[in-house]
Amino acid sequence: MTSKYMLLIEDNPDDVDLTLRAFKKANVVNPIQVARDGIEALEFLFGEGEHSGRDVDDTPQVILLDLGLPRISGLEVLARIRSDSRTARLPVVILTSSMEERDRMQGYLLGANSYVCKPVETEAFTEAVRELGLYWMLLNELAPTG
């Protein structure tokens, strides 16, 4: 993958489909890499397991992270991302159904760049995803590499 892409970490296939549909409707054409749980996401990011041999320097433009993940939780995934120098400066947006204060607090403490609560209503959800895409894929500049 040479063009700018985003990594969507989401275990719920409905949410994956709806998110992809929302991006499509919002005309966000960048590729979207989907990881179905925290382990897969980390393997992708660090070129391990299923993704061994992948060029780990090819990092996503933004990571959209769900919190309620099987195996290892979204917050733990965030902690691993932030603790590795290769990924420490990647933008991570928590995109979740949880409005719990505790989750928000933990997310920011662990270094999330943004926290977005997924609206239930489709129009609002689509609008949120569109704005995310626009912002992180087009407007936001990454930290310099190296």
């Binding site: 409905d14 709806l18 919190l67 159904s97 949880s98 719990e100 489709t122």
Partner: peptide, 22 residues
């Protein structure tokens, strides 16, 4: 329970609404 309500109950609702909209 609150946690699961906020997280787990919303997701199916969003799916219902999302796919209905689709």
């Amino acid at each position: 329970f609150s946690y699961s309500v906020s997280h787990d109950l919303r997701a199916p609702l969003r799916a219902i609404d999302g796919f209905s909209t689709a």
